[in-house]
Design a binder for these strands. Structure first.
Length: 761
DNA sequence: TGCAGGACTTAGGAGTAATTTG
DNA sequence: CAAATTACTCCTAAGTCCTGCA
């Protein structure tokens, strides 16, 4: 209760942030090592070098503006900015800023530094206008469809049929998925087939047959052709692969970057989505529908008024050109399946994305200062006379405690998934006295199943919300929806919404978990602990993944490995005893396990070990023979070599037989053949070695098991304040590379530079 | 004043590259 | 050194939340 209220409202939080910032400038060098070398290579783009001549006036203007408008202004700006989202100018808000704003001349250094613009060292995070100037090269379109060779056909009613290219393309989309779950999904089949028939009709139909029934379509020939193509692609030489890749990169280079306020920044998804079959998740009513090819005419570009308009593809026009600097997209088009809009945006490592990430986490940190009051309030409100208030309070409880999403209304032609406000009668089961079982499909049709104890009053309320005449299919919360809920949250803190609770609770959990970690062990052990902390967050947020097909097999394999190691260890210990029986008395515990393994078990393991060894020998021989086939030798040489190999192989096999005999004999008699070098000391060392290996492998197995159903990345990327990860890295001396991949390091550059080992969420 | 739709974040899986293993 | 395994990136669907409009 008396926790976070340290007289530290927003200012203190912010001040802390600001002061912690300038202290560390290390990451400069880190960056240099890791990504630097590649970064330097890239300036072949049309932007960058020629910048200075290319974009004269407005460039100057923006540059000066970019650097100029950030004197060390009030710390208020970040948070107050988010208070006034996209209203008219912020003039009324921060008049002072304008005044202090003396146009600075930019120094040489700044000009050179331009590439690595550190927005987080600036203070002005205005968010009405998102850019001053924006220049880019448009988008890349997927290649045109290439008809299949004439011997590859759709088989209809047992006969190969020809299709107009447009229809063949659609059939091909399905054929490519033939062995996936999609192709077995009746909805997918139905939607695909309907659209396929339509395209077929539009293009003159099939000359060879009247296609009317999905069941009579046989896509296997097409499928096999695609498989073969894949194989062929895989088989091309590595150099050739590299060359193709480089060529592609060169071609795409100019689309990869844009000029944002005169600075070079990366674009995210500059490739227009290719046509295909819509792969809706879960029981999506529209899954399988044809996603049509996007034409330049469908595309709206967004860039500066005076920026050059990228040329549309030969013989085409752009749909529309816009100059809207209140939005952060470079291009958009409307997609035909759901009628929603697709955007081409800045990359994750761009300053704009970084800023909004930063704001998101700062908003969540702000919630720290209100959470006690909010919790107190909703606990009281749980008993409110007003139904709406009760629902409000109960929903807030669920969001706060179980990290549920807000749960907006969904239309009929989407998958039936829910969040808090859209929970229905059938999604919760009440078990008195106060246990609730949640069972529903959330975002992406991921099942949320939890049996939990809740506050008694919450339990009572849920029972009331389920009372008749309510029945399955009815909303639990009938008086509220996300907008009501969010309005309620905003009364505490502007900008506070349901999703902020998820961010807050996730980061808070991570902080708490990190606080529990002791700074000991190897780097890898610490990484494992970090992942364990990460995992608690992922579990809180219900971030799941489907267990991979070969998970079970993988686990079994590791288990066998462990068994074998244990057996070897036991054998070593027996050897020790054989040399000195008195050892057993000296350390009974140490030798206890010698008798733990049952005879049957041991026999099985021995056989398995021998079997594996044998397989290895056979495989090796096969490989050697194969290799010999490629070698450029005369017939005689080859024959000779072959003989040698065969001899080697034979001797290995004999050795193996020998080993087999030894093992079996040892197993039968219980006495071991001990080499003179295997002194008791040596054996003991070996035991130690094998023990650490067992420990490591077991740890690895546990990690594998624990992670099999949990997706750690989503929380790492979206919910855990990256400064926590950086703090962990610095405090525990774990290289950040072990925690963030290259792309994440770029995305979170701001965090890597601004958090130290004492940073707290 | 409510709701459709625009703009943005969050999400898991497919595909590919890198690393380990046998 | 190839195959298996794991790590990481790319892709795009599916949410949230807000605004503007009727």
């Amino acid at each position: 209760m008396s926790s976070s209220e340290e007289e530290t409202p927003l200012n203190a939080v912010k001040r802390k942030r600001v002061t912690s910032k300038p202290e560390l400038a290390l990451s400069e060098s880190e960056d240099g090592l890791a990504a630097g070398s590649e970064k330097v290579k890239t300036p072949t783009t049309s932007f960058s070098e020629d910048e200075s001549e290319d974009v004269p006036l407005k460039k100057r203007k923006t540059n000066s503006k970019a650097t100029q408008s950030r004197p060390r202004v009030k710390k208020e700006s970040p948070s107050s900015a988010s208070v006034s989202p996209r209203k008219k100018n912020q003039q009324s808000k921060e008049p002072k800023i304008k005044k202090e704003d003396t146009p600075r001349v930019k120094t040489e250094d700044e000009a050179e530094e331009e590439e690595k613009y550190k927005w987080w060292e600036q203070q002005d995070l205005n968010d009405e206008i998102v850019w001053d100037t924006l220049e880019h090269n448009g988008v890349i379109f997927p290649p045109d469809y290439e008809p299949l060779p004439s011997h590859v056909k759709l088989i209809y009613d047992k006969k190969p049929v020809s299709l107009p290219p447009a229809a063949e393309e659609v059939a091909g989309f399905f054929a490519a998925l033939l062995e996936s779950d999609h192709a077995k999904n009746p909805t997918f089949q139905k939607n695909f087939f309907a659209d396929f028939l339509e395209v077929l009709k539009e293009n003159g139909g099939c000359p060879d047959a009247e296609i009317t029934e999905f069941e009579k379509c046989d896509f296997s020939q097409m499928f096999e052709y695609f498989q073969k193509q894949k194989e062929e692609k895989k088989a091309i030489s590595p150099q050739e692969k590299k060359r193709i890749k480089q060529e592609k990169e060169k071609m795409e280079e100019k689309y990869k970057f844009c000029l944002l306020n005169g600075r070079r920044e990366q674009v995210g998804n500059f490739r227009v989505e290719p046509p295909g079959l819509f792969r809706g998740r879960g029981a999506h009513p529209k899954t399988g529908k044809l996603k049509k090819r996007v034409q330049p005419e469908d595309i709206t570009l967004n860039l500066s008024k005076d920026a050059p308009i990228p040329p549309p593809p030969e013989g085409h026009q752009w749909g529309e050109i816009k100059h809207d600097n209140t939005v952060a997209w470079l291009a958009m088009w409307r997609e035909n399946v759901l009628g929603s809009v697709k955007y081409v945006r800045f990359a994750q490592n761009s300053s704009l994305k970084g800023m909004s990430d930063f704001k998101k986490f700062e908003k969540a940190r702000e919630l720290k200062n209100y959470i006690d009051a909010i919790r107190k309030d909703y606990r009281a409100k749980l008993k409110s006379e007003l139904m709406m208030d009760r629902q409000l309070a109960t929903a807030t409880y669920l969001i706060d405690v179980f990290a549920l999403r807000a749960g907006g209304e969904k239309s009929e032609d989407e998958a039936d998934t829910v969040g808090c406000c859209s929970l229905r009668y059938e999604h919760i089961f009440l078990k008195p006295p106060n246990t609730v079982v949640f069972d529903f499909l959330g975002k992406d049709s991921i099942r949320f199943y939890q049996e939990v104890e809740v506050d008694p009053q919450v339990f009572k309320n849920l029972r009331i919300f389920k009372k008749s005449p309510k029945k399955p299919g009815d909303n639990l919360f009938d008086r509220i929806d996300p907008s009501v809920l969010n309005k309620y949250f905003q009364s505490y803190l502007p900008g506070l919404t349901a999703k902020v609770f998820r961010t807050y609770n996730a980061s808070k959990t991570m902080q708490d978990q990190i606080d529990l970690i002791k700074n000991e062990g190897t780097v890898n052990e610490k990484v494992v602990k970090f992942n364990a902390a990460n995992r608690t967050v992922a579990i809180l947020c219900n971030h799941q993944r489907t267990v991979s097909k070969n998970h079970e097999a993988g686990v079994q394999k590791i288990n066998e490995k462990i068994e074998e190691m244990i057996w070897r260890k036991i054998v070593l210990k027996r050897m020790m005893l054989q040399q000195d029986k008195s050892l057993r008395k000296k350390d009974f515990k140490y030798f206890e396990e010698v008798d733990d393994m049952s005879k049957e078990e041991e026999q099985k393991i021995i056989e398995r070990v021998l079997q594996k060894e044998k397989e290895k020998i056979e495989k090796r021989y096969e490989r050697e023979l194969l290799k010999l086939g490629y070698e450029e030798l005369t017939k005689d040489e080859k024959a000779k070599k072959k003989e040698e190999l065969a001899a080697d192989h034979k001797s290995r096999l004999e050795k193996h037989k020998e080993l087999e005999k030894t093992y079996k004999n040892e197993f039968k008699t219980g006495t071991y053949e001990i080499k003179p070098t295997q002194t008791v000391e040596k054996l003991q060392q070996q035991v130690e070695k094998i023990e650490t290996r067992i420990k490591n492998t077991s740890l690895q197995l546990k990690d594998k098991e624990d992670n099999s159903q949990v997706a750690l990345n989503t929380s790492k990327i979206n919910y855990i304040d990256p400064r926590l990860t950086v703090m962990f890295s610095k405090k525990f001396n774990v290289p950040i590379e072990k925690l963030f991949t290259k792309t994440l390091r770029e995305k979170f550059a701001w965090a890597i530079e601004s958090a130290d080992e004492n940073w707290r969420f």
